[in-house]
Amino acid sequence: MREEKRGRGRRDSDKKDKRGDNKKKFQMSMRRKTCRFCADKKLSIDFKDAKFLQSFLSERGRIIPRRISGNCAGHQRDVTAAIKRARILAFIPFTTSQVSLSI
């Protein structure tokens, strides 16, 4: 089926052919990440587990976006809620500047 597509592309103008190739390369380099909570149903999101929540924070303590962490919308929402609760209870910092203050 792939060969069939390529053949059709060659018949079109050169410009269009090039564009098609680029698109294909782009898609191949971008591997779609799967949501780790959907993949492993046993994995629970707990606001008391600071170590686990750290994996969804940047160095500065900001929440890593969905497009990078690969979470699905629903689970990203749960993670965000858990992080915000953990911040209130001082499990994780609001910003890293607070860490240097306290130590």
Binding site: K48, A90, F91, P93, F94, Q98, S102
Partner: peptide, 21 residues
Amino acid sequence: NLGKKNLAYRIKKQTKGTYFC
């Protein structure tokens, strides 16, 4: 008793606290 932990930031001038759940 979740134990005595370092707080991520100071609360009431304390840097440590004992967590209970």
